[in-house]
Every structure is written in structure tokens, then in C-alpha cells.
């Protein structure tokens, strides 16, 4: 049963065993959720993004601050400008793609680098593939267009 569950997960995620993570391309990046879009999270993501651009293959790169106070604080620190300059959308606070109730979901088959905290089947829309990661890692995926070890990116290796 455990094996079945794993095979089902691989199939849903469209992954082949043995594929290096850094070869997995992403279609969307979602930096958000109440737990992973606090001001320190946005600072960490902005530090990765600063001076870089969202990769052409990434169709949507969103930053959704964890709350209105976080949004105001981030704007006071100029973080919104860093994200916008890189090609991110700077959006209104809310649950957004963490839950998707408001219709903010991906298209079937899309692969999302997401800082939310649930990766259940269909969580970010029917057929949508969620890879959970930290804000810095999501920022790294946005600028390279694939899952990326942010430490290697910052060291100039990725």
C-alpha cells in the first residue's frame, strides 16, 4: 500500500525516479501564505531576487504578503520594488494559492514552486503539481526557472 501511494504520487507529480531535482522546471512561483510570507521571509526572498530577473519559462511569479502590516512594512523597506523590478507580481495579502478558494489556482499539469504548507493532490487546482519550499528557495526557482539550491545560486554556481 505504501508503494502504491508513492507510485501514485510520482505519477501525479509527473516525475521519474532518479531525476535530479535541479532539472525540474517550474511554471509558477508562489511566495505567500501566513506562515511563509512574514516580513523576514520577504527580506530573505528579496535578497535572492535583487539584481536578477524571473526566468522566461516562469509564467507567473507572485508575491502575496502574509498580512496587510507585512505588506506595508515590506513597501517601507522597498522590497516591493525589488520584486517588481525582477518581474514578480506584488499582490494583495490573503490566502491566495495556499488554499485557492478565491480562484487563484494553477492550470492542470502546471508545476508550482510554493512557500505554502500543503501539497495535497489538487490543493493548488485540479492537476496542479506543488513543490513546497522556503521563500529563498522559491525565489531561486523563479530566477533560474527550475528547482535550485539557493546556496549554490548565491555562491554563483547555479
Amino acid at each position: 500500500m505504501r508503494r502504491e501511494a508513492m507510485l501514485r504520487a510520482l505519477d501525479y507529480m509527473g516525475l521519474t525516479p532518479g531525476t535530479p531535482l535541479e532539472e525540474v522546471a517550474v511554471d509558477r512561483v508562489f511566495i505567500g501564505s501566513c506562515t511563509n510570507s512574514r516580513i523576514e521571509d520577504l527580506r530573505a526572498a528579496a535578497a535572492v531576487v535583487r539584481g536578477r530577473k524571473v526566468a522566461p519559462g516562469v509564467r507567473h511569479a507572485w508575491v502575496v504578503p502574509g498580512s496587510t502590516p507585512v505588506k506595508r512594512q515590506a513597501e517601507a523597506e522597498g522590497l516591493d520594488a525589488v520584486f517588481r523590478a525582477a518581474g514578480f507580481e506584488w499582490r494583495e495579502p490573503g490566502c491566495s494559492m495556499c488554499l485557492g478558494t478565491n480562484g487563484e489556482i494553477g492550470a492542470p499539469g502546471e508545476r508550482v514552486a510554493s512557500t505554502s504548507n500543503r501539497n495535497f493532490v489538487g490543493r493548488q487546482g485540479p492537476g496542479v503539481r506543488t513543490h513546497l519550499m522556503s521563500p529563498a528557495m522559491a525565489a531561486a526557482a523563479a530566477v533560474t526557472g527550475r528547482l535550485t539550491d539557493v546556496r549554490r545560486l548565491l555562491a554563483g554556481e547555479a
Binding site: 501511494a5 485557492g100 478558494t101 500543503r118 495535497f120 493532490v121 489538487g122 490543493r123 485540479p126
Partner: peptide, 14 residues
């Protein structure tokens, strides 16, 4: 095993 509530009712109906 481990059927989650997202399978039981997708979030778009919440």
C-alpha cells in the same frame, strides 16, 4: 491510507 480533506472536498467549494 491518509485520504486528506482536499480529496474529500476540494477548496473551491469552501
Amino acid at each position: 491510507p491518509n485520504i486528506d480533506t482536499d480529496q474529500i472536498i476540494p477548496a473551491r467549494y469552501l
